[in-house]
Design a protein around this nucleic acid. Structure first.
Lengths: 207, 207
DNA sequence: CACACAACCGACAACCTGTCGGTTAATATG
DNA sequence: CATATTAACCGACAGGTTGTCGGTTGTGTG
């Protein structure tokens, strides 16, 4: 008995299955057959909705990242919160292991899934960069920061934090804590903020 | 007529072929058959010398990186040059497009070759980090820098520069130049160096 | 009610990697 | 010099993969 569904619904079913498989087994080691079995559809159906395996990956990443970026944007634009805190919270909203439903990215950061990793990172950085740059500009106006090249400096902060706080680069919990403190100090310097102005706020959020 | 060679020689022949293919076609899209054709050996021979395709990739990366790191180390340890310049030169010695024989890495940084890219980057960072950290420590002693967490700060510099100066992230030559200048200023801040102290030296080398 | 089309199916072609038993050149040994 | 040993090599083959394509079936519409 053949089940017919609206294209949008099927697409999502496929993406759901793919997401779980890619995350647990890794992209390379997940075969399209694995996906077919899980969704219980035939080969032809999969390729009716997506033009290739990589196309599925891209769609999946878009789905994840747009929700991630939407959240980051909400945080960043909450004018009731001081800028310094908003910056901190926006960055840490990307450190996904903090959050529900998103152990995803913790797992995604496995050596196997290089392609997935790279794609997510790039699209994440691109999405968050303008948001954070705005915040830095605001800080400049308020006089609490002093940044000549806001976009480039922000880029440096984001790029570093998305990589350095990956599981790959964590050796001991000891060194990871040290890295966070160093990151705070360095962020202060890069933003030209008063010494210690970020540290208190941040340590709360980074726990 | 079967040609027999010493294992070490065959291994290198295979690595040579693989390197060229991986770089031009990308790792994923290079099949072991492509390599076999190029070296003119049979399937069994390849797997006599390497245990898998990924094993070939790893060996190739080791070969490239150890030569790259050796050069970086030579630069870093030349005590006749002032520290600031040595730091600059060490970092720019990784910007491989500058140098002969190493357009490799410019090409390697294509989206397709995610795995290769990731592996090279990680091993590069690991190799260069201790070298550069030493330099920063020296600068601290000399009083021209003021860095509390040398290793972590150096890590930030390396990580950022290896990524941001990839071709992926270059849009216009305009923005790429801006990014370099910003990087210099930010490096000064991170190292706690006097304003402008790096800039002159660096602009020469980065051209 | 029949027609059109979107959604679905599964066999199949064309690859791909890694294995394995057997072969050959080079070198050591009696 | 004949023979044994073994490192380097070979290619057929098993088992897996992705993407294609002609054909089928459910569903809404005139």
């Amino acid at each position: 008995m053949r089940v017919v569904k609206e294209a949008a619904e099927r697409r999502n079913e496929i993406l759901d299955a793919a997401e779980e498989l890619f995350v647990t087994k890794g992209y390379d080691k997940t075969s399209t057959n694995d996906i077919l079995d899980k969704v219980k559809i035939a080969r032809g159906t999969l390729y009716y909705h997506f033009k290739s395996k990589e196309d599925i990956l891209n769609a999946m990443i878009d789905r994840i990242n747009s929700s991630l970026i939407a959240r980051a944007e909400a945080v960043a634009k909450d004018k009731s919160v001081p800028i310094v805190e908003r910056i901190v919270m926006t960055i840490s909203s990307l450190r996904v292991n903090t959050d529900i439903g998103n152990e995803i990215i913790t797992l995604v950061h496995k050596p196997q899934n290089a392609l997935m990793h790279q794609k997510m990172q790039k699209s994440l950085v691109e999405g968050v960069l303008p948001i954070l740059t705005d915040l830095v500009n605001e800080g400049n106006k308020e006089g609490i920061f002093d940044v000549k090249y806001p976009k480039e400096t922000t880029e440096m902060l984001i790029l570093y934090s998305t990589i350095a706080f990956d599981d790959d680069y964590d050796e001991s919990p000891e060194s990871s804590k040290k890295r966070i403190i160093a990151f705070l100090i360095n962020t202060e310097r890069l933003l030209g903020a008063k010494e210690g102005s970020l540290q208190k706020t941040m340590m709360k959020l980074f726990n």
